[in-house]
Design a protein around this nucleic acid. Structure first.
Lengths: 213, 213
DNA sequence: TGTACATCAGTGAACGCGCGTTCACTGATGTAC
DNA sequence: TGTACATCAGTGAACGCGCGTTCACTGATGTAC
């Protein structure tokens, strides 16, 4: 079947009896409902209703409710990575200044995402969706962007060689933890910028000569 | 009513018709069920059944299900703080070495808690229980212990004055984030000790002279 | 010490509801000739 | 181009269930005299 064929079929189908891309529509609807009501409280029937389809139709695309939720989780991780990619694209350049801005912006984007949509953040990190390849963070886009950022910071002499080793780990965990603690009300929102300042300073540990402005 | 009176009444009651301390028993049972099945999936009826009491009895002690869950959350925070207190008590002394060990043990206890009982950890930080006084972390026991640890590290010259300022924030967020990311399968378990190493190094940033072994 | 009574801590039935999942089905669509 | 047929993408009714919450109640307990 040619691509053209697929496209034509979709277009025609969408207007009539067949939905066209029900799978994607279900994921989007589920995402929207999670956003509004939280990851617990998501119901299959509500998702189907939102799309305007019978509950049983869902089972043509997902074996059960959990796998639908997992797919929503997958999409959220992709969305977050895309958001970070766009943020980085706004700050080009190989200067130390640009590298520093990119590093902070990467963290801010992560936090902003969490803070703006707490329920989506909870779905991602609250044990609702299974991680397919455990611990395989290396392969994911967001992690690669962080690695690139840290490499730039090292190359431009902003951070120390000795701290570079812990760069991804310390940055990711601190930003993740701050996001959770702020979202859940354990820390005030302003704490996030403080944390970025702390990370800036921390990442210079080991050779202060290179850490000058 | 005297204390003796209360105690006697409790003892007698427990054996007969009246439960004696149903409120605490319900919280314990709820905690146990959350531990097994996760914070979503907790049902009032199951809690009542576990205690051996009718579902409606719960309403003599809690206005609704959510407030029971919140009470479980409160207890968990207290339990964690107690566990940390006990861990610190095992490492007395005012030496730099003791201070360093206490600092690491504080983080490890937090992580061990999360890793051993993921469902309880999810209840605490997954948006299931309302925080009564938002952002009032200063008052809580665990935070005070962390502050004390960091003061000791500063006094013994292990960490820098400039990083001391960010001590609580950076330590708490990093440990919290690492716990979440490891529990949820985004990072391998071994990453936690790496993180502690990274934090040790980071906290010396600003004046390396003081950071010598 | 014994009795009458108020209070207290629970019961048990019922409410209305929404849930995930199954199943046989139907009507639209695409395809072969 | 027209027709017969297979396939595909949905429907809708039903299943059995467990849920949170309410309400009138009852039997045990504590208290006053």
């Amino acid at each position: 079947m040619s691509i053209t064929n697929v496209v034509r079929r979709k277009r025609v189908a969408r207007e009539n009896y067949h939905h066209g891309d029900l799978e994607a529509a279900l994921i989007d609807a589920a995402l929207d409902l999670v956003r509004q009501t939280g990851p617990d409280h998501l119901s299959l029937r509500a998702v189907a209703q939102q799309v305007g389809v019978s509950p049983s139709a869902v089972y043509h695309y997902f074996p059960d409710k959990d796998s639908l939720i997992s797919r929503v989780g997958d999409k959220l991780f992709i969305d977050l990575a895309n958001m970070q990619r766009e943020a980085l694209a706004q700050i080009p350049g190989i200067s130390a200044r640009a590298a520093k801005l990119r590093y902070r912006e990467l963290g801010r984007t992560y936090f902003r995402w969490a803070n703006k949509e707490p329920n989506l953040f909870r779905l991602m990190f609250g044990g609702f969706c299974k991680i397919e390849r455990e611990g395989d963070h290396q392969g994911n886009d967001a992690f690669l962007m962080l690695t690139k950022c840290l490499d730039d910071l090292l190359d431009t002499g902003v951070i120390s060689k000795s701290m570079r080793k812990y760069g991804e780990l310390l940055s990711w965990t601190a930003v993740q933890g701050a996001s959770t603690l702020i979202v859940e009300g354990h820390l005030p929102e302003a704490a996030f910028e403080d944390l970025l300042d702390g990370l800036d300073l921390a990442m210079r540990a080991g050779n202060m000569r290179a850490g000058s402005k």
